[in-house]
Amino acid sequence: MELQILPTSIIGSYPKPRWLLRMYSLYELGRLPEEDFREAVKDASVAVLREHERAGVDIPWDGEMGRSEMTEYFTAKISGFKFYGPVRVWGNAYFNKAAAVSKLEYSEPLVLDEFRWIKANTTREIVKVPITGPYTIAEWSFNEYYSSKEELAFELARILNREFTLLEKEGATFIQIDEPAMLNHPDEVPIAVEAINRAVKGVNVKFGLHVCYSNYNLLADYFDEINVSQFALEFANRGFREMEFLKKLTHGELGFGAVDVHNPRIETPEEVAKAIRKVMKYIEPERLYVNPDCGLKLLDRSIAYQKLVNMVKGVEIIRKELAKEGKESIPFRRSA
């Protein structure tokens, strides 16, 4: 399969339509039947999928309309987790940190329904399925049952591997493992690497790995050991500084974070193009994908959309330049 050079994609989340947020509150209060809630999520999913496509994104997703949060969505579906209540992350932001209180078991598919729905509704050939990785789920959970975080992370890797196998069977071709916490403990990076490798073992799809707002020097030493074909990283938020570590990325692809999701200012296409020219000093265009830094969900919806539009326009500027050199397409690479 061939793709246009510099394929554009997303990281995962997208602002939920206001009406959907209202459905979430009503549903949580028990004032909306489950059937109606599910239907609302599906409609929002198509609306956002279309929005990604209209912006010109090559490899879209539905902005995680059915997920309230990036770990709770998974821990709530894996048996063996218990919720004691929210924990603060900063300011007035909380999340429902789960506690592993008994042996964890895969009791139902995690994202299969989402994938089927999006696959059935997209106009694109490839969609990217984002799934929170085993180390991050372990790191963002309490552990009352397993003897170590390592054991907990490997157990989660076993569970995710089952889901990945199922997704491959259903026709998924691109899965992104989200590991925003994998560099939290510099000493534990090898555990995260091993957990990711266990999760992807024997599954023949393209795997990407997303890590953000971290010290990437801690990741760079493991580029060749992680069995994924792409690293999707944040750069815009750090002003496209600190790119030296990319010299260690000699084989894998880079998913280049070209727009900042923590700043409502909309980058111009020319700014995006300039950033891509800068990263091309480190990574040749045949190994580059372009995406936002991270999930867009904290932005206003119209701003998130315009950021995607300008990101694609910026990519088109560079595509024209590359076409002059005869560089117009790349193969869709699966293997690491």
Binding site: R88, V89, W90, E139, W140, A181, N184, H185, H262
Partner: peptide
């Protein structure tokens, strides 16, 4: 300034 990780926790300080 912006948010930084407070030691190795999923907790951030300004």
């Amino acid at each position: 300034n912006g948010l930084f990780k407070f030691y190795e926790n999923n907790f951030f300080y300004r």
